[in-house]
Computed example of a mutant assay.
Amino acid sequence: MSDLFAELPEPRLEPAFEVTVQVGPPRDHGVTSAGHRRVIPILGGRITGALDAEILAGGSDRQLIGPDGTIGIDAEYSALAAAGPLLIRTRGVRSGSAEILARLGRGESVDPGAYYFRTTFEVEAAAPEFAELQRTLFVAVCRRDGSEVRYRVHRIV
């Protein structure tokens, strides 16, 4: 590593909050011009920790499934906190062996260490109380468990 980069701080992860999202059955849209597309409805849920909010029904995860079964995650949903409403967006990837992905697809509980499921987490809101959340980068480690997706969100510092 060159001396020009030696002064840059190493990023650290700091736990920020936990999220539980209830999801509905996938709606398969088949192979579109972008690839194999399916949409997962978001039915509700909860965010706890540094952010405490109720996830509202009506959002969705517009997934793009690659030829090897890897799923591109692109979810948007609304949440309501005491200070006001928030828009949440997560983008990421879920991948693993064909067997593990098939088990997840059937709604089975699978050890989260057996597959890769990571996302980013973005917040958009009007209330000034959420300004710091909008100036921060977040990443999450995730788990699919039947009709729930659970993830722990970390602030990159």
Rank of each mutant, 00 (worst) to 15 (best):
T120H: 03
P128A: 10
A102M: 05
F130P: 09
E18D: 11
R150W: 00
E99Q: 13
A75Q: 10
R62C: 07
I55M: 11
I65N: 12
G35D: 09
A127D: 14
E76Q: 15
D52P: 04
P15V: 06
G45M: 10
R12Y: 02
D111H: 09
C142P: 05
L87C: 02
H36T: 09
L80P: 07
G45W: 07
S109K: 06
E148G: 04
R155K: 13
D61S: 09
R135T: 04
D74K: 12
S97R: 09
G84S: 05
V141F: 07
G92D: 02
V153S: 03
A127E: 06
R143Y: 02
Y151G: 07
L137E: 12
E124N: 13
R94P: 14
R144Y: 02
A81S: 09
L104M: 14
G58D: 03
G107F: 01
V149T: 11
R152D: 11
L56C: 08
V110D: 00
E7M: 03
R155A: 11
I42D: 06
G72W: 10
M1A: 02
G84D: 04
L133P: 11
E132P: 04
Q22C: 06
G72D: 14
F117H: 15
V23N: 03
T48H: 00
R118T: 12
P25Q: 07
T119E: 13
L80H: 13
